[in-house]
Design a protein around this nucleic acid. Structure first.
Lengths: 170, 170
DNA sequence: TTCTACATGTAAACTGTTACATGATTCC
DNA sequence: GGAATCATGTAACAGTTTACATGTAGAA
């Protein structure tokens, strides 16, 4: 149940409405924890009911601005320090690799070549994002930069692996 | 819905019972697509109902041995060649990184140090698995080795990243 | 005035996890 | 005879996706 912690985390930076949070998910958090509009609004209601967040203000068009309650900050800290991350790496991309033997060698190689391109493309997207952001030296910048660096290294690794893998066939 | 394709893929290698498939998930496939006993038996029933697999034989203790039907092989090939992999990387491990700013610097560094150890540990597990397996040059060996190499490279990358990240704090 | 962005909510279907429930065969 | 392993199945719950449904405020 990480969605609630993602919401608590975002609210720890500043108060926001469901709509604001949705936008933040679509941009910064989409790569590590995608969430839909429906899921976010439902979870915010639950978080407010359980007292981890509060409706601090109501604005035009029924806008509700949420703030983190003390209990919410405590829960966020607990999640960060006391719970172990799952190394649950469900990857349909890698699952396919196991079964490439049912294809002809050139088809299998084509799949791996697509992965090279996919990784190169994602790497480039992140590189552009990196350039576009005016990095500061506040918390958000430090940790945002660290997360982005992970994406860069990950895509570089995956690209090299897929290039190597393509040479292993036949 | 990759579970059904994982099952079709395993059955493309050889006929198997639900129990056999469960064991294969626990060992080889656990790293890329974990599945529970309950899920596997339920999905096998659905696959048989829709004609993608068939019950070829029944053994002791109610054992049902499934084989891949032609339609199942077609569906497997379709999945491998015609559908795009999701680059859906839900990672609670990385999600936490975004919010490490709410912790004290030494706590944040401790989290990253744990990731170094986690990656080193997983790398070592895979290295031992690599040594233990008697790699052949059949399809299964070629693609199994490719998938394992991914794991090795991934954990090496993650370890180096976490080591670097720890130096970036404060 | 009309379009776009803001803004929220619910229902149904699907996927995945945990727990319960049962029983047969083989090995020691 | 007892324990471990083989073998299957279902129920309840939690999490996720897709689709539907509605309406307001501001900008051009």
């Amino acid at each position: 149940m990480s969605l609630r912690h993602a919401l608590l985390g975002l609210l720890s930076e500043r108060p926001a409405s469901g709509y604001d949070l949705l936008k933040r998910f679509e941009t910064s958090l989409a790569n590590v924890w995608p969430a839909t509009q429906s899921q976010i609004y439902t979870e915010l209601t639950k978080l407010a009911d359980s007292g981890l967040i509060m409706v601090a203000a109501e604005g035009p068009r029924g806008r509700k601005e949420y703030t983190l309650a003390d209990a919410g900050m405590a829960e966020l800290r607990h999640w960060l320090t006391e719970t172990k991350p799952q190394r649950n790496t469900r990857s349909d991309l890698l699952l396919r690799v196991f079964f490439l033997g049912v294809l002809r060698p050139e088809q299998a190689r084509a799949y791996l070549t697509e992965l090279v391109e996919l990784s190169a493309h994602e790497h480039e997207q992140l590189r552009q994002l990196d350039e576009a952001i005016d990095w500061d030296d506040d918390d958000l910048s430090v940790y945002g930069r660290i997360a982005l660096e992970y994406g860069l290294r990950f895509n570089a690794m995956r690209r090299e692996w897929a290039e190597w893998a393509a040479t292993q066939i036949k």
